[in-house]
Amino acid sequence: MRRLGSALAVVAVFAAGVLLHAWLASQVAAHRITGGEAGIECIGRGSTHVVYLHGIDSLGPSWQELENRQTIARLAEELDLAVAVPRASRPCPSPSSRCWADDTLSAIRTAARHCFGTPATVGAVAFSNGAFALGAAYQRCQATELAWVALGGGGAVGDGIAADLTGCGRIAIAMGTNDRHHRHFATDFVAALRARHARVELVEFDGGHRFDYAAMHAVLASLVGKR
């Protein structure tokens, strides 16, 4: 009985530790994100300038976003890209995470200036939450300053889509066929863009919600003219 009580006490302390540490970490992260702590990484030294927008992320990159950056670095090497990686400076509805908001295009400009000086044009590639934010800018025809737009695991559609997207630039979307929470956004988005004469391409791959190397390679190679 005494051993059981001791074991239960240890388990209770562990559970309390998990909850308290996670809560404290989220409070610190929320404070630092709300305080505008961001930062821009520059990956690759290629001749084509690109800005990458991450998905919902923590204060620093999560394991998934670290893998996305590895994919970005591989793509940069393979396709001769130089990639600027800004960090969203706005808290998500859950304030310990970073999300993109209506400052997406200004974040792209700032990141491009930081990594490339004053480039003639940049393309933009985005994943998940970043893809929804960038897709929203594209569908309003606000992304015309970008050479092209590439989205992974996201789309947009909702309020505010321009009647005609003829002159609004090129866009390509990579979407996993098993991405049950996001795929319909992409298919609806592509249908809406095609109905409005946008230059849009959809690349589907066998997988879920991920920044798939092969699919993003196909998308980017098409957009930068290396296919």
Partner: peptide
């Protein structure tokens, strides 16, 4: 018992640090 509780408390922190390394640190 105090030793086990301390280990238990620190274990929860160690698991958070490697399970979500970006949660507390930008780097």
């Amino acid at each position: 018992l105090a030793s086990r509780m301390l280990a238990s408390w620190c274990a929860s922190l160690a698991m958070l640090l490697t399970g979500a390394p970006g949660m507390l640190f930008v780097e």
